[in-house]
Each structure stands twice: as structure tokens, then as C-alpha cells.
Simulated assay, not measured.
Amino acid sequence: MATESKRITFTVTPDMVPLMDRAKRMFYDRTQSDMIRILIVAGLESQNSKEHSDGSKNHFTKKLPDLLGEETAKTF
């Protein structure tokens, strides 16, 4: 079964450079693609938990520990 991937491109604005440098240090052992995927999922999970703090069902299926591993996820 083949997996179909989609490619996205975004521009890192000057105000984001320090944030991206920090992220690169946090994800030194991963590819940039992994880093971006993990950060997107973490941001979506964070937003989702804020929106659904009333206990309604979470819409995202991948959890940060699943992407990072339990030990690395504890550092967030």
C-alpha cells in the first residue's frame, strides 16, 4: 500500500528566525521535515485542547508522545 505525501512550503519571516533556531536546537536529531510536522501537530493539539476544554472529543489522532517518543515529549 503506497503512502501519498503532500508537500508544503512556507516562508520564515525575520521575526521567526530566532524561534526556528531554537526549534532546530530542540530537534537536532531529526530532519527538518520531522521538526515541522511535530511542531504543527503540537500546535494543533494545543489549540484543540483550548477549544475543547469542556471535555468534547479530540479531533487529532496523532499525539506528541507518539511522534517524539515518551521521554522526548516530557521535555515539552
Rank of each mutant, 00 (worst) to 15 (best):
M1K: 11
M1E: 14
M1I: 12
M1N: 13
A2P: 12
A2M: 14
A2L: 15
S5Q: 15
K6P: 00
I8Q: 00
I8A: 04
I8H: 01
T9R: 07
F10L: 06
F10H: 01
F10E: 01
F10M: 03
T11A: 08
T11C: 06
V12W: 04
V12Q: 02
T13L: 05
T13Y: 02
M16S: 12
V17Q: 08
V17I: 10
P18M: 01
L19H: 10
L19F: 08
D21R: 12
D21S: 13
R22I: 14
R22A: 15
A23G: 02
A23Q: 02
R25F: 02
R25G: 06
M26Q: 11
F27G: 02
D29H: 10
D29E: 12
D29I: 07
R30Y: 08
R30D: 07
Q32N: 15
S33C: 10
D34A: 10
I36Q: 00
R37D: 15
I38L: 05
L39W: 01
L39G: 03
I40C: 11
A42K: 11
A42W: 08
G43T: 10
L44Y: 09
E45C: 09
S46A: 12
S46V: 06
Q47V: 09
Q47K: 15
Q47E: 15
S49R: 11
S49P: 01
S49M: 13
S49G: 06
K50G: 05
E51I: 05
H52R: 13
G55E: 00
G55Y: 01
S56Y: 02
K57E: 10
K57V: 09
H59V: 09
F60S: 04
F60I: 09
T61K: 07
T61V: 11
T61A: 09
T61L: 12
T61H: 06
K62Q: 09
K62W: 06
K62L: 15
K63F: 05
K63C: 04
L64C: 04
L64F: 02
P65S: 04
D66R: 10
L67Y: 03
G69A: 03
G69F: 01
T72W: 02
T75G: 04
